Simulated scan of single mutants.
Amino acid sequence: MRVVVQRCKEAKVTVGDSVIGQIGPGLMLLVGITHEDTEKEAAYLADKIAGLRIFEDDEGKMNRSVADIGGAILSVSQFTLYGDCRKGKRPSFIAAARPDVAEPLYERFNQLLRDKGLVVETGKFGADMDVQLTNWGPVTLMLESHQSSMAETL
C-alpha cells in the first residue's frame, strides 16, 4: 500500500454536485493498493498514520498526532499511485489492485483508523471525484507498507 499523507487545514471531496466527505484540520490521505496488499499492510499503515506526529506543539515542534489535535481524516482511494511512467508517455496501472480486491481493503483500512477513535470521512471508491484541500505547511509525506518489513529486519 501507498498513502500520500497531507496535513491540511480543511479538505473535501465532491462527486457531481454533492460534497460526500469534508473535514476541518487533520489529514488528507490518498490511498493506493497493489495486488500483494493484505490486512497486515492496512493495519501497519493505519497504526503509523494514527500516531504520526506532524502537527506542531506549543513550542513549534512536530510532536502531535491527528488525534492529539482533535483532527479528522479524509481518505480517498487513488489507484494512480501505482501508475508506472517508466516506459512511453502513458502510465501503466498493472501494479494497481483490481477494484474487487482494492475496495474491501480500502474500506478495512478506513475502519482500522476509526477503530483507533479517529473521525474518517471518505471519497467514493471508483468515482470521478473533485478533491480540494488547503495543505497546511505544506506538509506532505509518502508512506509505503513495504517499509514495515524493512523495519522488522533492522
Rank of each mutant, 00 (worst) to 15 (best):
A50K: 04
I23M: 03
V5R: 13
E10L: 01
D47C: 01
D58Q: 08
G21Y: 03
K61N: 15
V76A: 04
R114G: 00
P91S: 08
I54M: 14
T153P: 02
P25T: 09
K48D: 12
S145P: 00
D130C: 09
I54H: 15
L143Q: 11
L29P: 15
A42W: 12
E36Q: 14
E10N: 06
D68I: 06
N110H: 06
L154H: 14
M28R: 12
K124A: 03
Y44E: 08
S18R: 14
R98D: 03
A151I: 13
N63C: 10
Y106I: 06
A42H: 07
R86A: 02
E10A: 10
G71Y: 13
A151Q: 15
L74P: 14
T153F: 04
L141Y: 09
M28D: 00
F109E: 01
L112I: 05
Q111F: 00
K9H: 07
A50H: 08
E59I: 14
F93T: 07
V3C: 07
I94P: 09
P104A: 00
N135A: 09
T134V: 15
V4K: 09
N135G: 01
D68Y: 05
Q132A: 01
Q147Y: 08
A72D: 14
D68N: 05
M28A: 11
A151T: 14
L143Y: 03
D128S: 03
E144M: 05
Y106D: 07
A127R: 10
T34D: 15
E36L: 12
I23H: 01
A50S: 13
W136M: 02
G32V: 05
I49R: 09
K12Y: 13
L81V: 04
A95R: 14
M28Y: 15
L113P: 06
